[in-house]
Amino acid sequence: MSDTETIPVVDLGPYLAGEPGALQRTAGELRFALTEIGFYFIVNHGVPEALIRGAFEQAARFHALPLDRKMDVRVDKHNVGYLPMRGDTLRTSTVQTVTKANLNEAFFMARDLPDDHPDVLADRRFRSANRWPKDLPGFREAVVAYCDALEVLVHKLVRLYAVALELPVLYFDEPFRDFQYKLRMTHYPYQEALADDDFGIAPHTDTSFLTLLAPNNVPGLSIRTQTGKWIDAPVVPGAYVVNGGQMLQRWTNDVFLATPHRAVNRSGGERYALAFFTDSNIDWPVASVPTTVGPDRPPKFPTTWYTDYMIQYQKRTYDLLADANRQAAE
C-alpha cells in the first residue's frame, strides 16, 4: 500500500463475514487510505444492487418532474427538499475561490422522522420531517429503504474507523447510534465546453465524518491528491466511493484527511449521483479522539456541535436560502 495517487479498493467481504484477522487487516487498509489519499472504494459491502438501482431510478423520476412541482418542496432551513439548478455556490471551499454556482440540481432527505416526533414538533434545526414530493408513488418508500441499508453499513464502517485509530472497536457505537445523515440525489446535466471555473460541483471538501457515494457507471468525479495532482475516479463496478470530510478532521485532529474533490459531467448524457453524508448523533460533542492528541500534539480544533457547524455552512453555501432570508428582512 504505497501508491498515493490511486484510489485503493477495500474488500469488506471478509470483515463483514467475521473472518479471523479481517477486522485488523481491513482497518489497516482504511488507515492508509484516510491518511494518504482521503478516498477509497469498498466492494462486497452488502448493500443490495436492487436497492441501489432503485434509488437511482427514483432520482431520475424526481428530477424529470416539472420545475414548479419540484419547487413545491424547495429546500428549507433544515436542508431537506429540492435545491434548484445553480442553487448553491461553494464559497466555503478551502481549495479554490468559488464565485459561480454549481451546475446541478439536487433533492435532499434526512432520517425520516414521523410528524409527531418531539424534534419535529419543536421545529428543531436539522431534525425536521422530510419534504416529500406529492403524487410520486413509491418514491419515499424506495429512498427510505435505500437509506436504511446504508445505515446498517455505516454502523459496520465506524467500527473499522475505531480500530484504524487504535481505539476500542466499539468506540463510535454510541456517538453514531442515531446518527445524522443527508442523502443528496443530484442531477448533473451534460456539460460541453466550459470555462475553467464552471463545474457540476466546484472543488470542495465535504463537511461529513464520512460520505458514501453510490456505485455509478457514469464518470465525473475527480479528487486532488496530496501532491496537488487532480486524478479522475475510475468506474469500479458495484463499488461505493468513500471519503472523509471536515468533521472527520476534527474527530481525528487532522490525522485523517478531508480530500478536495469536484465533479464535471462530460459523459455526453445525464449523470445522477447519490451521496450519503454521515455524522454523529446531533447532540454529540465532536472533539479529537484520545489517540490523536498528546503533549506534542494539542487539539487543532475546538469542540464542535453539528447544528452550529451546519448553520454556518448553510448560510454561506445555499443561494436560495440566502435570497429568502434577505427578502424576509426587507
Rank of each mutant, 00 (worst) to 15 (best):
P66R: 12
P66T: 11
L67I: 13
D68I: 05
K70D: 08
D72V: 01
V73F: 06
R74H: 10
R74D: 08
V75R: 03
D76N: 15
D76R: 02
N79G: 00
N79F: 04
V80W: 02
V80L: 04
V80I: 12
G81E: 03
G81Q: 04
G81L: 03
L83H: 00
L83Q: 04
M85Q: 10
M85V: 07
M85T: 08
M85C: 06
R86G: 03
G87M: 02
D88F: 00
L90Q: 08
R91K: 14
R91F: 10
T92R: 07
T92P: 00
T94F: 08
T94C: 04
Q96I: 04
T97L: 13
T99Q: 13
K100A: 13
N102G: 14
L103P: 00
L103C: 10
N104S: 13
E105I: 06
E105M: 09
A106E: 07
F107K: 03
F107C: 02
F107H: 08
R111Y: 06
R111N: 14
D112Y: 10
L113E: 07
L113M: 07
L113F: 11
L113N: 07
D115E: 15
D116Y: 10
H117D: 15
H117T: 06
P118M: 10
P118K: 09
D119G: 04
D119K: 11
D119L: 05
D119R: 11
V120S: 09
V120N: 10
L121Y: 09
L121V: 13
D123C: 07
R124L: 10
R124V: 11
R125A: 14
F126G: 00
F126N: 00
R127T: 03
S128H: 12
S128A: 15
